[in-house]
Design a protein around this nucleic acid. Structure first.
Length: 350
DNA sequence: AAGCCGTGGTA
DNA sequence: TTACCAAGGCT
């Protein structure tokens, strides 16, 4: 057998015995018995898992599939419902694209997901990784699935020292050479499970790795330092003010943020820009009290220090931004994390 | 094509 | 406390 066949065989044997039990997964035994996963659940899980850990996804996946069991049900949901259910999971463009995609599948494709990489790639929110993953996992098509796990496993198996992201084509070629024609879905999941549980970024468990005998980095002692990555830029600090306005009947002044950009489409408190720019006009004429303390939150590319200003207004107050939401309709869990932190601080200090 | 886009866990 | 990291996609 070729080395690539040995790796594929050992990997599948390991997967058969060690596959993680995941809510969206049909395990290797059931899969070999002919059971097929629900493409809707596979797609939903893959969108949620983009740059996100399994531990963070589990509860969200359960809530989404309970509330919207099919792609058609999801397609009929209102935007605010879906954004509220996604709140806290991050990368909110995923939620906007999730709904767009569900509406295309339900409205134009009779509720059936495409089964090919190309067909999936044409849908909103589905890129090269997700298209390959869904066609492979849900439809057992032989596609090369390349995510962060696969990159790391390939870099170690073949001792690739080229830093990411420049190394991607080289790593993809290695992954493609390993791609089997049999059980491609299980193979893809096996590589990712290996990367998530054994071939981990820090302190890889080489001692119990099924591929220890064929791993070049292991033989050369370089596994823990791979893959190499180009250094990241430091994160600047931005500041801003958030205004927490409560009406005398308890209603809270909130606004839905524009679809584009940071926290796009999410509910939040009116506020200034987050930068070094001078504060803008507050969203309502009133007396402000500055709350003690501040909200600290780190986004992908900057740190934020948010100060809070609070006020209580009468029933006649007319805001220039946002709208009052009755307290009974307000759920803190509908807020993205930074906005929920602001709410928590306001409650603690009020 | 390089920057933008969240969050919580971990060392 | 800080920095790194995770089943990436869009523009």
């Amino acid at each position: 057998m070729r080395d690539t066949d040995v790796i594929g065989h050992d990997l599948l044997a390991w997967y058969d015995a060690n596959a993680r039990d995941l809510p969206w997964r049909v395990g290797p035994a059931a899969r070999r018995a002919g059971e097929r996963p629900d493409p809707y659940r596979v797609w939903l899980s893959e969108i949620m898992l983009q740059q996100t850990t399994v531990a963070a996804v589990r509860d969200y996946f359960h809530r989404f599939t309970t509330r919207w069991p099919t792609v058609t049900a999801l397609a009929e949901a209102e935007d605010a419902e879906v954004m509220g259910e996604w709140a806290g999971l991050g990368y909110y463009a995923r939620a906007r694209n999730l709904l767009k995609c569900a509406r295309v599948v339900a409205g134009e494709l009779h509720g059936t997901f495409p089964d090919t990489r190309e067909g999936l790639l044409a849908l909103p929110g589905i890129g090269p990784y997700t298209a390959a993953a869904v066609s492979s996992i849900a439809f057992d098509r032989a596609e090369t699935v390349m995510d962060g796990n696969v990159e790391r496993v390939m870099a170690r198996l073949f001792d690739v020292h080229t830093p990411l992201p420049a190394a991607k084509p080289e790593l993809f070629a290695h992954a493609e050479a390993l791609k089997p024609l049999e059980r491609p879905g299980d193979h893809a999941q096996a590589v990712m499970d290996l990367g998530a549980t054994i071939c981990t970024p820090r302190s890889p468990a080489c001692g119990i790795c099924p591929l220890i005998g064929v791993c070049t980095a292991r033989a050369r002692g370089t596994a823990p330092e791979l893959p190499k990555k180009t250094p990241k830029k430091p994160k600047p600090i931005r500041r801003g003010i958030a205004y927490l306005v409560q009406r005398s009947d308890g209603a809270l002044l909130l606004e839905t943020r524009p679809d584009k950009g940071l926290l796009g489409g999410m509910l939040g408190w009116p506020g200034t820009e987050w930068a070094e720019a001078p504060p803008e006009d507050p969203p309502i004429e009133t007396e402000w009290r500055t709350l003690p303390g501040e909200v600290r939150h780190t986004f992908t590319h900057f740190h934020l220090i948010l100060t809070l200003q609070a006020s209580t207004v009468g029933p006649e107050a007319m805001p220039t931004r946002g709208q009052f939401m009755p307290r009974a309709e307000f759920r803190p869990s509908d807020l993205p994390t930074v906005m929920r932190k602001a709410f928590d601080l306001w409650q603690a200090k009020s």
